[in-house]
Nucleic acid binder design. Sequence first.
DNA 1: TCTGGGGTCCTAGGACCC
DNA 2: TCTGGGGTCCTAGGACCC
Length: 416
Amino acid sequence: MFALIDCNNFYVSCERVFDPKLINRPVIILSNNDGCVIARSDEAKQIGIKMAQPAFFMTDFLKKNNVSVLSSNYVLYGDMSYRVFETIKNIINKVEVYSIDEMFLDMKGYHQSPLYLAKHLKYIVQKHTGIPVSVGVAPTKTLAKIANHIAKSNNGICILENSEEIKTTLENFPINEVWGIGEQISKALKKWGLSNAWQLRCLYDKYVHKTFSIVTLRTVYELRGISCIPMKENPPSQKNICIGRSFGSMTSNYHIVKEAIANFSAKCAEKLRNAQLVANSLSVFIETNPFRNDLAQHNQLKTITMRSPTNNTPEIIKYANFCLDEIIKQGFLYKKAGVMGSGLEPSDSRQQCFFNTESAKKNDRIMETIDKYNQKNGRDTIRLAAMGFERKWWLRQEKLSKRYTTQWEEVITIHN
DNA sequence: TCTGGGGTCCTAGGACCC
DNA sequence: TCTGGGGTCCTAGGACCC
């Protein structure tokens, strides 16, 4: 049996732990750039706020309904997620972190019943972290996802065990909400008159494989109770590290885009060093605003293989500049750009370039020193000139809460 | 004015190898 | 007349996830 634990309205719940004023009222969290709604409290859902709605479309509505609006605070959510994980890890051995607010658990080998374990986990996580969770348990991960869905409207617990129960559940479960079935595939299935998960489960293997892919076939097997998606406890180290951002406003200015790319490159290099990885190849992409039909569009990606794998900031900026110059064109208003390192490998086992081992070692030490200094004195205190100071491309984050759990200066103060 | 960011996996096609 | 078979690696693009 697999369990899926999902934190309820996770980002909102994190904010509520540290700011009780937010309890029992509609709260929404906005994406980077304060653009779209990415998390809602139950109260916000009830008054009809939808996921991914752009906030600027409903400024008046939010005011009228007294909705609390917050920017996203990923430092806080990341740390709270880790606390939830540690709490669960104390009870269950095999845990896979699936996303910031979800974990799969291997429930094999416990003498307690799944129902008992589920209740216990829910209680302990709430008690130790302040985060409410829902628990779904079933024979495969895909079915556990469905169980979790049902748990949300069922006191937070759902165990799907016997086949009759599973059949009734699947017959009432919309096909497009099955894990692994997205917009495209559910559209295609609906054309064939299929609408619930049981119908999907009953399709011919050959038809599914031919029409879609092996991925969808796996989903069908999982619905039949045959586990095809194993637990990944120690996920192989990351394959890509990508930093991409929308700009605060559109720009056709080459220098502004270049400065943004230098900053994304530096952040990417820093992430690589933190994970003790080096990248073999580097990609840069630029995009115009897809919502502006009246403007000319230009989206392009350029990938190059670097001379030797690296996580060195100046080097990565140099390669990124090269890529940018290849793709950027005059006369377009750019809205978003990004830098991605791929072909990642551990930095200690890298193949050094034959000619410059000595200078590479020296560069590593410089980077190490800068990272340490910046960690102590604040991000980008020491920076490359290319990263600039103006930050005309910088995003908006107007309603950011504090980093309550990771910065001494921002720990909450209690007044008498 | 304003519409997120960070990932994974699979497939097809082209270049290249012997 | 008639032009192989079996691979790998890379890239781009499309699907999916939260």
